[in-house]
Design a protein around this nucleic acid. Structure first.
Length: 951
RNA sequence: GGGCGAGUGGCGGAACUGGCAGACGCGCGAGACUUAAAAUCUCGUUCCCUUUACGGGAGUGUGGGUUCGAGUCCCACCUCGCCCACCA
């Protein structure tokens, strides 16, 4: 790495202020008494690798900048941080490096926090840190499960679920990407297991409806809408018969000879309009009717020998199909497989006896698990019909006859390219003939309902959320199974059900979690009747840990409640209570990656709705605003371990400093689309920081008696522009505006007063917190200029500073009491090999330690012992305001177009010129260009341009 | 196959509701300072034509359209990225 470094001593400056901010508790928020709360949340990271990478640095800096800006605007900005270190991602990494997840996660989280996050200059309130694997946290995760269970939102059922053979656990639908495990990329299999589910489908409609009004990045809203997948269709019930034959029976009312009605089959379709063209019905291999055929409950043929032969074939097909993984099914491409049942379904519209098939392209858990095949107007049906020689009947033709009704149009369909799916006019469809598809759909639905053959229904793609995991590293599901009492949730006073610290923690793959092998854990007594009972041995999906963490942050020090709301409030009013809850939640702004669109973000919405339904809270959406950031790429590709193109920010912080790294990352592109990491451009940033340093240390430039007009105007335009850009997360253009200002300021004759120079410094502060603090302390605080520089906002700040020094004492107490608490929590639990209590208290202690910031190179004088000393940081001063009169221009230049092309530019035009005067000026200007032509009209776009139209 | 987004100099990227395309930065070129290099500073830098000032022409993925005027709006297409996907 050979980068242009800043020429000032950024290393020591950054070290010094990181420590000072920490010691003075600058970013700690008084949750209880805050006046203008702004809950600025960034998705907490999960340490699934040794170091946080540059993507984390990029996104968290994006969150920090708006937080710093809001803080300077006088908001009480709460910017908490924690680690999502419980669960499969961390455990997989622990397996890889062969360390116990408890030690590993503690170590990695500490490192993320102390060597990376604290160094990069974020305004984080570390006194509210949480980690999802701390018993003091997961106690409440378990509590939430019990609340949902008590309110009928959690249930246990046997279900065919996604099984990852590599991670050796079940996965939720959302965690299977293209048939592969979200974590490790292994092909997912299907297994039938007894699992716990959260009934997210109960809120399907609400989850969808709220999407219309929540202020979230559009792409996330669309992704969720698709994932929920609401479809309005109809369920059509067909009679199932045996001893029949395919095709239209002559006597559709009376059965053909020997035909015998033996049951019904219900098919879901969104396209009943094409039902005159339905020629077969396909069942999913899991369908009830298939089970009945296999069990012999339904006989296909009278003769036993023929029957059992058929059953053998069906059994063979079904067994293969069920055991196939999704990827294997897809790998076979569009080639359809299937088995004929020997039965027929009767199409009431036509009397057509539709052969009843079984095929794995029909999904058992969507719709009714049965589809009616219209091969002429559905590509999948067409492929199936072609494969098995089923009849294809056209019932839709192209709507426009302009191509002269070519043979292609209403003739026989022989090729997949002729299959019309979306638009056209009905033919061969009795009373629907001549109608367009949309009208025909409605008409047919009415007709089928009238006849009693069908029923309008709404289906959703969304499935219930499977939360059981057969893994060690997660919160145990707090349930006990008793022979007498059945399923009994663990009572609140017995929580947490602690995860025992064991040596044998790796997954075994037998469908049970490692906890099942620990008798001391499994064997317990029933909380209800006291009889011997067994514990549930699965653990929670880690997405449950993160589904509610933002509720916990403000209340992380409360032991008695997960968070305080009127319904949960107990006695203690000295710590954040339900009044505080109202101030801080829902979260003001949430920033995170779009890859969580249908995972984490859907779950947080579900949990919030569940809390509301239970009566814990009175709102139903977790975040007032959600902004999805883009991803930093490397050579146009996503950064990933497999590509080996991961960039670690530490090297850059060493080389160019945190300020320069922050600014460089933000300069790459807009936050919401990000950019490609290529360190070629870094010198532009370090050069800029040097210029700032030099300007601010050149008193002729930055402490002039009077600000020169040109740069003063530029300053005020910049104040306006930077403020707007930050509000819109366009940090890249905000930085370019700061650069423009510096370029003007650098001109020979340009200078600013101290007050104006500091205004610029403040604009830079959210982007480069260290250098701006250093300069501010030097030329404002230490030089005794504070009262002069901040005279416009002294009144506000005086109050603020006072609050802060009171708060300092309070939060010191909170920190020490929380370390005691978590130590107490884990040691008081007497499960076998209980998590070592010293581990926990050590980690809590490191919460306030400065080891890393105080490394060997210590020429920082420690004047910060006495925390009550007032510390006047630039980061809590007023954000500058611009002066409208200084932004207004007296003169403008107006381009003159002839027939839309710019030909001349009128310069130094007074802004208050009369339109007519300006027009004649313009015509005079272009006189030579329009001789001999008629001026048709002259258009004046106010303050923009003049357009002359000639002929 | 479906959804979303994006295609602008050598590069990253600017351009509010249609109104001087290429801000800012990198890179590159020239110059100043220096014994020299680095650093720094100044000037230039979309392409083409004109020896040049002046000037002219073309130009925002492709082809059409609307408009006095289109990177921006409409239609068709191409390419790339991300997400979802045998979802009836």
């Amino acid at each position: 790495m050979n980068l242009r470094k800043p020429s000032y001593d950024y290393q020591n400056i950054e070290k010094k202020w990181a420590k000072k901010w920490q010691d003075s508790h600058l970013y700690e928020v008084d949750i209880q008494n805050a006046k203008k709360p702004f809950y600025n949340l960034w998705m907490f990271p999960y340490p699934s690798g040794a170091k946080m990478h540059v993507g984390h640095a990029f996104a968290s800096t994006g969150s920090d900048i708006i937080g710093r800006y809001k803080r300077m605007q006088g908001y009480d900005v709460f910017q908490p941080m924690g680690f999502d270190a419980f669960g499969i991602h961390g455990e997989n990494y622990a397996i890889k490096v062969n360390e116990h997840p408890w030690h590993l996660m503690e170590k990695l989280s500490d490192e993320f926090r102390d060597t990376q996050f604290k160094r990069i200059g974020h305004g984080i309130d570390w006194s509210k840190e949480l980690r999802t694997y701390w018993p003091s946290y997961y106690k409440w995760t378990q509590w939430i499960f019990i609340k949902l269970y008590e309110n009928g939102l959690a249930e246990q059922k046997k279900a065919k679920v996604n099984w990852c053979p590599s991670c050796k656990t079940v996965l939720a639908d959302e965690q299977v990407i293209g048939g592969e495990c979200e974590r490790c990329g292994t092909q997912v299999e299907k297994r039938e297991l007894e699992q716990w589910f959260f009934k997210i489908t109960k809120f399907a409609d609400k989850l969808l409806k709220n999407l219309n009004h929540i202020d979230w990045s559009k792409r996330i809203v669309e992704a969720q809408r698709n994932w929920i997948g609401k479809k309005e269709g109809i369920e059509i019930t067909y009679d199932v018969v045996r001893n029949s034959k395919p095709g239209v029976s002559d006597e559709s009312e009376n059965s053909p000879q020997g035909e015998e009605k033996i049951g019904k089959v219900v098919c879901f379709t969104t396209r009943p309009d094409t039902n005159f063209g339905a020629t077969f019905v396909v069942l999913a291999p899991e369908h009830d009717l298939v089970k009945k055929i296999l069990s012999g409950e339904i006989k296909v043929y009278d003769e036993d020998s023929k029957n059992s032969e058929l059953i053998e074939q069906i059994k063979k097909y079904v067994t293969e199909a069920i055991n196939k993984s999704d990827v294997e099914r897809l790998a076979e491409g569009k080639k359809k497989t299937g088995a004929f049942t020997g039965l027929y379904a009767v199409n009431q519209l036509t009397g057509y006896r539709m052969p009843l098939w079984i095929s794995d392209f029909v999904l058992g858990d969507y719709g009714t698990g049965a589809v009616v095949g219209v091969p002429a107007h559905d590509t999948r049906d067409f492929e199936f019909a072609k494969e098995f020689g089923l009849e294809i009947i056209r019932v839709v033709k192209s709507a426009d006859d302009s191509d002269g009704g070519s043979a292609d149009d209403d003739g026989e369909i022989t090729d997949i390219s002729q299959v019309q799916e979306d638009e056209g006019v009905m033919i061969n469809s009795g009373f629907l003939n001549g109608m367009n598809i949309q009208d025909a759909i409605e008409k047919m639905k009415d007709y089928l309902e009238e006849k009693g053959w069908g029923k309008r229904v709404v289906t959703f793609r969304l499935r219930d959320w499977s939360i059981s995991r057969q893994r060690y590293w997660g919160a145990p599901i707090p349930v006990v199974y008793c022979d007498k009492c059945g399923t009994v949730p663990v009572p609140e006073e017995d929580l947490p059900v602690e995860l025992p610290f064991v040596d044998e923690w790796k997954p075994s793959g037998d469908g049970k979690g490692p906890l099942a092998n620990i008798p001391e854990f499994v064997n317990t007594t029933c909380p209800k009747c006291g009889a011997p009972a067994k514990r549930e041995t699965d653990t929670f999906d880690n997405f449950l840990d993160s589904a509610w963490y933002f509720f916990r942050y403000p209340f992380v020090n409360r032991e008695d409640v997960p968070f305080a709301t009127p319904s949960l409030e107990k006695s203690d009013d000295s710590e954040p209570n339900s009044e505080a809850f109202k101030k801080w939640l829902p979260v003001t702004l949430y920033l995170g990656g779009p890859e969580h669109a249908v995972l984490h973000l859907m779950y947080t919405r579900f949990i919030t709705m569940a809390f509301e339904e239970i009566g814990l809270i009175d709102f139903d959406e977790p975040f007032e605003r959600f902004v999805a950031h883009g991803h930093i790429t490397m050579g146009g590709k996503k950064m990933s371990k497999s590509l080996g193109n991961i960039v670690i920010p530490d090297d850059y912080m060493n080389e160019i400093g945190a300020d320069a790294l922050r600014m460089y990352l933000m300069f790459l592109g807009p936050l919401e689309s990000a950019g490609d990491f290529n360190d070629d451009g870094i010198s532009g940033i370090t050069k800029f920081l040097d210029r700032v340093w030099n300007l601010m240390h050149d008193s002729a430039k930055s402490q002039s008696d009077k600000s020169s007009e040109k740069v003063l105007k530029k300053l005020h335009k910049t104040i306006k522009g930077v403020s707007e850009d930050i509000e819109n997360f366009k940090y890249n253009t905000a930085i370019s505006k700061l650069m423009e200002l510096v370029n003007v300021w650098n001109e020979k004759s340009e200078s600013l007063t101290l007050v104006d120079s500091v205004k610029f410094l403040k604009l830079l502060a959210p982007f480069a917190p260290f250098i701006t603090e250093e300069i501010y302390q030097e030329i404002v605080v230490e030089a005794g200029n504070y009262d002069v520089v901040e005279k416009d906002c002294l009144s506000r700040r005086n109050v603020k500073q006072k609050d802060a020094s009171e708060k300092v004492l309070q939060s010191n107490e909170l920190v020490s009491s929380s370390s005691l608490n978590s130590a107490k929590l884990s040691s008081s639990l007497d499960s076998p090999n209980s998590l070592n209590s010293s581990d926990t208290s050590d980690s809590s202690k490191s919460l306030t330690s400065n080891d890393v910031l105080d490394d060997g190179n210590n020429n920082v004088t420690d004047t910060t012992e006495n925390v009550s000393t007032e510390f006047i940081s630039i980061h809590v001063q007023c954000w500058p305001e611009y002066d409208k009169s200084l932004i207004a221009e007296n003169f403008m230049s107006i381009p003159v177009q002839i027939n839309g092309k710019v030909k001349r530019v009128l310069k130094n035009i007074p802004v208050d010129i009369e339109e007519e005067d300006l027009k004649s000026l313009a015509l005079k200007e272009v006189q030579d260009l329009i001789v001999g032509k008629d001026v048709v009209k002259v258009i004046y776009v106010k303050d923009r341009l003049i357009s002359v139209v000639v002929r």
